[in-house]
Simulated assay, not measured.
Amino acid sequence: MGIIVNLDVMMAKRKMSLNELSERVDLTLSNLSILKTGKAKAIRFSTLEAICRALDCQPADLLEYVNTENPTEIK
């Protein structure tokens, strides 16, 4: 897996819908959905910044690294 996107977790904590976030960060619903489901291959820093601003969070709240070579290793 590698990088896990926790966008849905932060949206739930902030009680924000995908539609509302889409409007606030000026991204299409389909692009946000791709990011939310973890299917995105990349994210621009400007997009990450806009999402963090809208959700009042840090990038680390949205992105998490999981060691796929040794998944039992303690972080």
Rank of each mutant, 00 (worst) to 15 (best):
G2S: 11
G2P: 12
G2T: 08
I4Y: 11
I4P: 01
N6R: 15
L7W: 03
V9D: 07
V9T: 14
V9W: 06
M10F: 15
M10I: 05
M11Q: 12
M11Y: 15
A12T: 11
A12G: 11
K13A: 05
R14E: 04
R14M: 07
S17N: 11
S17L: 06
N19K: 15
N19M: 11
N19A: 11
E20Q: 14
E20M: 06
E20I: 07
L21A: 07
S22R: 03
S22D: 12
S22T: 03
E23G: 14
E23T: 13
R24N: 12
R24W: 08
V25D: 14
V25S: 10
V25P: 13
L27M: 14
L29P: 08
L29K: 14
S30E: 14
S30Y: 04
L32K: 13
L32D: 04
L32P: 14
S33Q: 13
I34S: 00
I34Y: 14
L35T: 02
L35E: 04
K36Q: 09
T37W: 00
T37F: 02
T37V: 01
T37K: 03
G38F: 01
G38I: 00
G38L: 00
K39V: 00
K39D: 12
K39R: 12
A40Y: 11
K41Q: 13
A42G: 11
A42T: 08
A42H: 09
R44N: 01
R44Y: 05
F45S: 07
F45Q: 05
F45V: 03
S46Y: 00
T47C: 05
T47D: 03
T47M: 01
E49V: 00
E49D: 03
A50T: 02
C52Y: 08
C52P: 08
C52A: 02
C52Q: 01
C52G: 00
R53W: 10
A54H: 08
A54V: 09
L55I: 01
C57P: 04
Q58W: 10
P59L: 06
P59S: 12
P59Y: 08
P59K: 03
A60L: 00
A60T: 03
A60G: 00
D61V: 07
D61A: 06
L62E: 04
L62H: 10
L63P: 09
L63G: 02
E64Q: 10
E64D: 05
E64A: 03
Y65M: 07
V66Y: 02
V66G: 01
V66D: 09
N67D: 09
N67C: 04
N67M: 01
N67L: 05
T68R: 08
T68Q: 08
E69C: 03
E69H: 05
E69R: 02
N70H: 12
N70L: 01
N70G: 06
P71G: 10
E73P: 04
E73K: 07
I74T: 00
I74E: 14
K75A: 09
K75I: 07
